[in-house]
Design a protein around this nucleic acid. Structure first.
Length: 568
RNA sequence: CGGGGAGUAGCGUAGCCUGGCAACGCACGUGCUUUGGGAGCACGAGAUCGCGGGUUCAAAUCCCGCCUCCCCGACCA
């Protein structure tokens, strides 16, 4: 490809809105352009990288027996009503009416379509197991897009669906996908950590997320450096020691002026935060006020809390008025004397005697609050976040917290969708059984961004060879001085093109100064930069620079020609 | 949705407080020179100053409303 013909432009200055390296570099180097919040066009270079990433994902899916297909982006709403998700999902799903007034939705995932297809196609146990996948656009109207391609609203996902006769079969499919993901991310040049995760809106029993460590990551991971424990903080369960036993003392109200936070309360009383009980207030999607009580030295984990109260439609922080309506006082709140609220107590609070808790009266707290005696739980569960230094559940050594970006996930779905669509098969026993499903996603664009996040330097992108849009970047210099420069460049460019699409190179044939060409070559990030110039020809060939190391060697033309075909 | 910030030429910005010809760098076009690390000179094109309303002799600038984008928090590939 001649750079003079390529639909792109590089930017000398960083776009003001781009903060993450991948966002900045993909914009500057002319790979992508933004159309709206969380909506991006892929320019030709971006499209080629995207295709290379897709191809690696495709090969690894095919290797474990996945069959590629394609399902639509626009679905009739009735399909989503059948699974119940038309009601449960909320505003992140795009909804519209067709010209006849029928409710339609934009696909945010494809379990429903697969469920319906299974009901249609699968009759017999002989058709199972079976795994299908496709690359398709999803629309998810996220509350906030961010970080360029890291978190967008419209994106292409590889989503795969495994279909098995029973749980044992699902287990096999699940771990086959696990292995495929490990290979996929290795080939993409991404160091991932598989963490166990929440099953979220998908429902199901077991799930892993593949995470790339990144300070800008939106997930917090709980990791153990002594063993291989790794979990999303949403689900990490940390063992906690029993608090020292004390006899319950009488409840006693006392004045704590202005102590609306645990920090100020503990400082005022000169006690540890672990001697206090903290109440946090949420409202579920179905309108219940939830009061969560954790010890002052912990934080509420909203995922665990949501699961504990079986919240449909998620949780949102409660308004002051909603807290007051239940007889509680924000800043001095506790379930003591409250009414009309669902109370969830962290199991550590349940075991901690004589805590300081809010008195539901401005400027007052109680001493010696005891769960079970002074207030009762509707549910007692672990609802706290793991913290750095907590003991690892495997080996007991202190865990660390790191941020991560989720580049892929795998879910055991079970029969939720096959039940909804009556997707059954006749078993060897002559009976109908529900098909057992799994679901496996990889966001293509996010992976592209993550590759740039790990493979770049101060000059620009450094593509791993497997995903680079072109195998090499040819820079020709001094064509006016030496006619052979253009001839040789032309020859190398044609040779690479003839060697096949994967061997094609980018040739900067523009009439630009050498400085501009080198700078752009480094910004664009092809793994090899080939320089043809009067100087290189006089020295006997082509200068070959490895982008990653900056190492330069002068190689005879014939050798470069061979390497353009066989690889460098 | 809560909090913070920003919309001026393709990109980056100044001008706004204190109203008075819309400016600078890069990029872009033409010509000449230059050609191994973001070249030089000359000429040139490019902006309804996010949108709507208001105040004023006069609005990028002041006031009101709206829209969009970015960043931090609750969701996910």
């Amino acid at each position: 490809m001649r750079l003079s013909h390529l639909f792109f432009t590089t930017l000398r200055d960083d776009p003001a809105e781009a903060e993450m390296p991948s966002h900045r570099l993909l914009l500057r180097a002319g790979y992508v352009r933004q159309l709206g919040s969380g909506i991006y066009s892929l320019l030709p270079l971006g499209k080629r990288v995207n295709d290379r990433v897709e191809q690696i994902v495709r090969e690894e899916q095919d290797r474990i027996g996945g069959q590629e297909m394609e399902m639509p982006v626009v679905h009739p709403a009735d399909l989503w009503r059948a699974s119940g998700r038309y009601e449960t999902v909320g505003p992140e799903m795009g909804r519209f009416k067709d010209r006849n007034g029928r409710d339609m939705v934009l696909a945010m995932t494809h379990e429903e379509v697969v469920g319906q297809l299974l009901a249609d196609v699968v009759r017999s146990w002989r058709q199972l197991p079976m795994m299908v996948y496709h690359f398709q656009t999803k629309w998810r109207d996220e509350p906030r897009a961010r970080g360029g391609l890291i978190r967008v609203r419209e994106f292409v996902m590889k989503d795969a669906y495994s279909c098995d006769r029973d749980d044992a079969g699902l287990d096999v499919s699940y771990w086959a996908q696990y292995g495929a993901y490990v290979r996929t991310f290795e080939r993409l040049g991404l160091a991932t950590i598989a963490v166990s995760s929440d099953v979220g809106m998908m429902g199901g029993s077991l799930a892993h997320e593949f995470m790339v460590l990144n300070p800008a990551g939106e997930d917090v991971l709980v990791l153990c450096e002594s063993c291989d424990y790794a979990a999303n903080r949403q689900v990490a369960v940390i063992p906690r020691p029993d608090p020292a036993a004390e006899d319950p003392l009488p409840l006693e109200e006392f004045e704590t002026p202005g102590a609306t936070t645990i920090a100020s309360l503990a400082a005022y009383l000169d006690i540890g935060a672990d001697r206090t009980a903290k109440a946090a207030f949420f409202v579920t999607g179905d309108g219940r006020l939830v009061t969560a009580v954790v010890r002052g030295d912990h934080e509420v984990n909203e995922t665990k809390l949501g699961n504990a109260v079986k919240a449909t439609g998620g949780l949102r922080p409660a308004q002051i008025e909603e807290i007051k309506a239940a007889g509680m006082e924000a800043g001095y709140g506790s379930p003591i004397g409250a009414r009309g609220t669902f109370v969830v107590i962290d199991d550590l609070v349940a075991r901690s005697p004589n805590l300081v808790a809010g008195a539901n009266r401005e400027g007052f707290h109680y001493r010696n609050a005891n769960a079970g005696r002074d207030y009762t739980a509707d549910v007692t569960a672990d609802i706290t976040n793991a913290q750095g230094g907590d003991p690892c559940p495997n080996c007991g050594n202190p865990v660390i917290l790191r941020n991560g970006i989720e580049v892929g996930n795998i879910f055991k779905l079970g029969t939720k969708y096959s039940d909804a669509f009556e997707a059954t098969y006749l078993g060897e026993d002559g009976q109908a059984h529900p098909i057992v499903m799994g679901s496996y996603g990889i966001g293509v664009g996010r992976n592209v961004a993550c590759i740039v996040e790990t493979h770049h330097d101060e000059k620009g992108i450094v593509w791993p060879a497997e995903v680079a849009p072109y195998a090499a970047h040819l820079v020709s210099i001094g064509t006016a001085k030496e006619p052979r420069v253009a001839e040789i460049a032309e020859q190398l460019h044609g040779l690479a093109a003839d060697a096949g699409p994967r061997r094609e190179i980018l040739w900067d044939d523009r009439d630009e100064s050498p400085g501009v060409k080198f700078t752009d070559a480094e910004l664009l990030g092809m793994p090899w930069i080939l320089t043809v110039s009067p100087r290189s020809l006089a020295a006997g060939g082509v200068e070959v620079t490895e982008r990653a190391t900056g190492e330069r060697t002068l190689r005879p033309i014939e050798e470069v020609e061979r390497q353009l075909v066989d690889g460098f």
